[in-house]
Design a protein around this nucleic acid. Structure first.
Lengths: 77, 77
DNA sequence: CTATATTTGTGCGTATGTATG
DNA sequence: ACATACATACGCACAAATATA
């Protein structure tokens, strides 16, 4: 899946939704890291700030936890 | 102190005045950084553009100098 | 042990679009 | 038309902590 820059839905929400779907599908497993901000930038073709906001949303949703200088991990079910 | 959105005085001027007062009171000391744009946003509940314009005014008044990617600092007395 | 690469945190610069008075 | 204000989104640079070679 990819992102649609023309959609009225902010890119960072779209990216968050795409990653959330990968978590819920089991592709990204509990306890394991999601892609780094840099990987997200490259994978979805967005700026780092956009990737960071997307991850911030996932934290707000309680799907992930971020450990500084370590990464962001899927929360245990 | 806080900001008044209903005042005829633009928000960015109000924010600039509040920060200027903190400089003149000595709370923000010469040579030391004033709060970041993000901190100003959060502290005064304004958008980033408003915070930026406020800092721009402080620069015009000669109260601070901005060093790109490093921060904005109170000028030496 | 040292050096490098990775990853997140922070800070500013800039541009565009939208809405309001 | 213009100024104000907010939101989104691109970018660069540097720091600090961690992971790896």
């Amino acid at each position: 899946m990819s992102v649609n820059p023309l959609s009225p839905t902010p890119l960072y929400v779209q990216v968050a939704d795409l990653i959330a779907a990968r978590i819920e599908s089991g592709e990204l497993e509990p306890g394991k890291p999601i892609p780094s901000e840099k990987s997200i930038q490259q994978a979805y073709g967005v700026a780092r700030g956009t990737a960071r906001r997307a991850v911030e949303i996932l934290r707000e949703r309680g799907l992930v936890v971020t450990m500084p200088q370590r990464g962001t991990f899927v929360v245990e079910a």
